[in-house]
Design a binder for these strands. Structure first.
Lengths: 113, 113
DNA sequence: TTAACACTTGAACAAGTATTCAAGTTATAG
DNA sequence: CTATAACTTGAATACTTGTTCAAGTGTTAA
């Protein structure tokens, strides 16, 4: 209860500022996933993913539960989906030139949007 | 036209991940400001602010125009306001504990929200 | 038990970002 | 002209984050 709001906000956005973390949030906003399922979609090392999940966890954006010897993650606020959509709107408006739209056209939207 | 979308998104969020840049966007989403006006609201060195404005400019989030020997900045997409509001919603939901609400209660919302 | 799978952790190093300083530009006022 | 206000730039350094590696925990399956 001591930090000014704009600092908390900045940190919040920094927490989203990593490709793997974005993909995790997008996958999780479809449905809960176990870590090995995330690993199947996101091409990074387990240990690296685990670190990135740690960032999201400490930020309060996702939650962990153990079930059947696997660790499942879920988003902790449904509004996260809205935020990602809002970002998407700005991106298509403002920085559309830099985006690779091929993935979109191939239909693997869910993995790469 | 080469980078995958989730990387562009991550970079986009990283561009928002700095207290001064957040404050700039919030001030600018109220109205255009000259740099010295921003400086009056945001307590950092001119040169530092200029660097941060450069980041926002290169990200395509703000635009520069020179008028009466002053440099005015404006947001380049109105959706930015929506995004900041969406972030606000998640923050109050998910990380409310870490926020300093005093500024809110003092009415300097516009400078620090 | 032991092995294998599914993860997490900490430490070390690499890579990226922020801040400061000194110098430079542009425009207006004296 | 010369000075001053309003900015910007680049380079140096300090700081923060990301990635990898090696080791460790918990759980199920032989």
């Amino acid at each position: 209860m001591k930090r000014p709001l704009y600092e908390v906000k900045a940190e919040f956005f920094r927490n989203l500022g990593h490709p793997a973390r974005i993909r995790v949030l997008e996958l999780l906003s479809q449905r809960d996933h176990a870590v090995h399922e995330l690993l199947a979609e996101i091409p990074i090392e387990p240990s690296n993913l685990s670190h990135q999940l740690g960032v999201l966890r400490r930020a309060g954006l996702v939650q962990q539960t153990r079930r059947d010897g696997q660790v499942y993650y879920s988003v902790s606020a449904p509004e996260i989906r809205d935020l990602l959509l809002a970002a998407r709107a700005i991106l298509s408006d403002v920085v559309s030139d830099q985006i690779d739209l091929r993935s979109e056209l191939r239909g693997d939207w869910l993995a790469s949007s």
